[in-house]
Amino acid sequence: MALPDLSERLKHLDATLTSIEKVLDLDKLRAEIADLQEQVGAPDLWDDQANAQRVTGRLSALQAELERATNLRQRLDDVEVLLELAAEEGDEDSRAEAEAEINRLAGSIESLEVRTLLSGEFDEREALVTIRSGAGGVDAADFAEMLQRMYIRWAERHEYPVEVYDTSYAEEAGLKSTTFAVKAPYAYGTLSVESGTHRLVRISPFDNQGRRQTSFAAVEVVPVLEETDEIDIPDEEIRVDVYRSSGPGGQSVNTTDSAVRLTHIPTGVVVSCQNEKSQLQNKASAMVILKAKLLALKKAEERAQLDELRGDVQASWGDQMRNYVLNPYQMVKDLRTEYETGNTQAVLDGEIDDFIEAGIRWRRGQSLN
């Protein structure tokens, strides 16, 4: 690309990054970081472990967000100097280096721009992810475990803490269901586009005749509630069951009845938690999950009522939203955005940012229609 074209492209990237910086409000971000650092320095911080984890987790995430934005600004300034050097000295190597860096910057800035599209009521919250195996027998249970691994790997790539609340193992292999939290700001807004039915096509490793099998798993993402959220659940509306935690194959991993299952009687919503060693801790964690799911249910009902009033009731966009085809060819394709890749292993290893970003842009476009 010629130098004038590179200069023009650089101006466009600079304008985009400036717009992003205004939306992120870097001064406000720095002020919140300073406040959180003051809280972290308090000697009694860890007297309340739940609050301490929330404070330190948010501090880490906001510092990473600020560093990401400031690092992009520094890179943009550096490449501008490199481009000027290439123009003054007619240095082809500098021009080529500048072009390569501009290409890298374009991808990074575009990725950060997606973050500014997360402006929903609960988008900035942490996320609770539930995965359930669907049709497809043991292959579906195995697929549910593959998806859990995919999302946890994605969180690890971004250094987001993950806490598994409950895991129900299938008899032969895989998972019947699992619920885990991704503890990072905007985790809900980011992962909410992953809600829906996921479909896997492959040669079944559990079929001794080597036949191709289609299986399904459902992904549900809800925001973690905060203390200020108004969700009041009377005690008489909840049934509490306790049981022993178990591992793969039903093997006991706890000799006491510490696992807790909560059933919200009016709605039939059931949640469970067996991650903690004590029954009280598991009950508290299960209540967090239950409140989050009831809030999501309430919001869904409100949206349905609005759609009915508008006379514009549509099927959920999340139904069978993505196909993972491992045989007879390799392809992962999102059916809403049309985004696809042939690198299936990378996707299953947690490289799903491109799918998430495409989903966020797609959702934004749908809301504007």
Rank of each mutant, 00 (worst) to 15 (best):
184 A>P: 10
184 A>Y: 09
186 Y>E: 01
187 A>Q: 11
187 A>S: 15
188 Y>V: 05
188 Y>T: 01
190 T>A: 07
191 L>Y: 10
191 L>T: 06
191 L>D: 04
191 L>F: 04
194 E>C: 02
196 G>C: 05
198 H>D: 06
200 L>R: 08
200 L>K: 05
201 V>E: 01
202 R>H: 14
205 P>I: 01
205 P>Y: 03
205 P>N: 10
207 D>M: 02
210 G>H: 13
211 R>F: 13
214 T>S: 12
216 F>K: 00
220 E>L: 09
221 V>Q: 01
222 V>T: 15
227 E>T: 09
229 D>T: 06
232 D>K: 14
233 I>Y: 10
239 R>S: 10
240 V>W: 14
240 V>F: 11
241 D>T: 11
242 V>S: 13
242 V>W: 00
242 V>N: 11
244 R>H: 08
244 R>T: 00
248 P>H: 00
249 G>H: 07
252 S>G: 05
252 S>A: 13
253 V>C: 04
253 V>S: 09
253 V>Y: 00
255 T>E: 08
255 T>A: 13
256 T>V: 08
258 S>K: 03
258 S>W: 00
259 A>G: 13
262 L>R: 05
266 P>T: 03
267 T>Y: 04
269 V>E: 13
270 V>Q: 11
270 V>Y: 08
271 V>S: 07
273 C>A: 03
273 C>D: 03
275 N>F: 00
275 N>Y: 00
276 E>Q: 12
276 E>F: 03
278 S>V: 01
281 Q>C: 03
281 Q>S: 08
282 N>D: 08
287 M>S: 14
288 V>E: 14
289 I>F: 06
290 L>D: 05
290 L>A: 09
290 L>C: 02
291 K>W: 05
293 K>D: 04
294 L>Q: 03
296 A>E: 08
297 L>G: 01
301 E>F: 09
302 E>Y: 09
304 A>H: 07
313 V>F: 00
